[in-house]
């Protein structure tokens, strides 16, 4: 009986953890999109005033989270890879490790490849348009998070409870 009880508790706890990790993924997606927007604001400000090299912008941006595409791109830029190759490699790596979905990644990848490819005014315009787009993507991600997190938690808890009851 004791073993069954422990087993049931463990199953319920696992269910809870699964629910929490799925929720965390949704939360992290929102955070990563906000970080991308934050990075673009930083790039826009720096291009407007100092016009540093693009590679310096990536390496000097110190707010990126571990595993984010910005940080990964900065790591590849420090090696012998060209900027284009660094961005492609960073997004290839993000395919398995990033919390962003495919559409987000494709958009950010094509955006990063356009950074540095035109004059100052065009860059500022590109970044401003991108910020508006990312704001929409972030709002959509937040709505998804709200609707799906309840579902995930409910399914996870109830499945765990059901299995626990079956065991008992």
């Amino acid at each position: 009986m004791l073993i069954k009880t422990v087993g049931a508790v463990l199953i319920m706890t696992s269910g809870l953890f699964i629910g929490i990790s799925l929720n965390k993924r949704l939360t992290d997606r929102v955070l990563e999109l906000k970080e991308a927007a934050d990075f673009l604001v930083y790039v826009k400000r720096m291009i407007d005033y100092e016009m540093p090299l693009l590679s310096d912008l990536f390496s000097q941006y110190d707010r990126e989270r571990t595993g984010s595409v910005i940080k990964t791109t900065a790591v590849y830029l420090k090696t012998d890879y060209s900027y284009e190759a660094s961005v492609h490699k960073a997004f290839e790596a993000a395919e398995y490790s990033s919390v962003l979905d495919r559409k987000d990644r494709d958009y950010l990848c094509s955006l990063f490849l356009q950074l540095g490819s035109s004059d100052r005014e065009s860059q500022i315009t590109l970044i401003e348009n991108a910020l508006r787009q990312i704001e929409c993507m972030t709002k959509k991600a937040e709505r998804e998070k709200e609707s799906k997190s309840k579902v995930y938690m409910s399914v996870a808890v109830y499945s765990g409870a059901a299995l626990a009851i079956l065991m008992l």
Partner: peptide, 13 residues
């Protein structure tokens, strides 16, 4: 030319 400008055309515009 993009590579020569270190992918920062705005800097050399």
């Amino acid at each position: 030319v993009a590579r020569i400008c270190e992918y920062s055309i705005y800097k050399y515009q």
